[in-house]
Simulated assay, not measured.
Amino acid sequence: MTVLAATVITGPAHAGAVVGGTVDITVTPSGFTAPETVRAGALTLNVRSQDPQGAWIGLVRLRPGVGLEQYLEHLRQAMDDDPATSVAGGRAVAEDVVMLGGAAAGHVPAAVTTVVAPGRYHLVDFRDVQEPDFARRVRSLRVVGPAAGARTPSPAPAVIKATDSGFVAPRRLVSGSPVLVVNRSSQFNEAMLMPVRPGTTPADLDAFFAGTGGYPFTAGPTGVVPMSPSRAALLTTALPPGEYALVTWVRNLRTGRMLAQEGMRELVNIIPADGSTP
């Protein structure tokens, strides 16, 4: 499997052209700014949130014949609390766009690297779906080719796979080290790391998702937002060492239930960069 690696060329986080592979995005309660143009190739989204609710910045590409307003309306439906509406919206979203992932960031910044070909894309903060000015908060991104700069080989990262049978993931991840997230499932999916209370067990997660147990999480998610099937993205984030739940909040587009309710959840230990026990 090819390891994603980006040429890091810094640029302004405001309208204009960025000649390189890194975009810095700071999210506030009123939205975010982003460049209008980047080069094709490996693109890294460095996301930092100043919004107490966090940020879920995703990169999407509309399929031919699909308008932005159509996609945004389907996205609103996909994130509805009613399962029937959510499934119908989710199925429509899957037909509307190719989802290339992106970064969920809360109290800790996160960087996600994905590969983009030339074309027109959109950056969306999924947290803003219910905002009345949601459409105005979406940022258009034009990717031009050929790719700029040379790629630098990087060590093989840890790998998290989302499959139709659940997550396949290491029991331990090193804080600050890159993790390759691969969607091998049959629908769009995500990989979120959420800190849990000390001593949380798999049975505790089972009880929570069954509706019979308490809330085990101590903070919001950090990770990779939804990607289409067969897509991959490289996540880098310096989460504090400790116990985390690896979960997805996406619904199964066949059953209407959250995939996490159907067993797509794991406990993961994040250890310090020096490998010591937290």
Rank of each mutant, 00 (worst) to 15 (best):
L4E: 07
A5R: 13
A6V: 00
A6M: 02
V8L: 12
T10G: 14
A17E: 13
V18E: 00
V18A: 12
G20N: 07
T26I: 12
T28S: 14
T28I: 13
S30K: 13
S30E: 13
T33Q: 12
A34W: 03
P35E: 04
E36P: 09
R39D: 03
N46H: 15
V47K: 03
S49K: 10
G54H: 01
L59Q: 09
L59C: 11
L62S: 00
R63C: 00
R63M: 05
P64S: 06
V66M: 10
Q70L: 07
E73F: 01
E73L: 03
L75C: 09
R76A: 07
Q77P: 08
A78G: 06
P83F: 04
A84I: 12
T85M: 01
G89S: 01
G89K: 00
V93S: 02
E95R: 15
A105Q: 08
A105S: 13
V108I: 15
P109N: 07
A110F: 08
A110P: 07
T113G: 05
A117E: 15
D125Q: 07
Q130G: 13
E131W: 12
A135T: 12
A135D: 11
P153W: 10
P153Y: 09
P153G: 06
P155I: 02
P157D: 09
A158M: 02
I160F: 13
K161I: 09
T163G: 06
G166L: 03
R171A: 12
G176T: 06
S185L: 10
E190G: 02
A191S: 09
M194L: 15
T200P: 00
A203G: 02
D204A: 15
A207L: 10
F209M: 14
A210P: 05
G211H: 14
G211P: 13
A219W: 06
P221C: 04
G223Y: 02
V224R: 05
P226R: 04
A232Q: 15
A232P: 05
L234F: 04
L235E: 12
T236E: 15
A238M: 10
P240T: 09
Y244H: 10
A245N: 09
L246F: 12
V247I: 15
R251C: 04
R251Y: 00
L253F: 04
T255C: 02
R257P: 00
M264C: 06
R265T: 01
L267C: 01
V268Y: 11
G275D: 06
S276L: 07
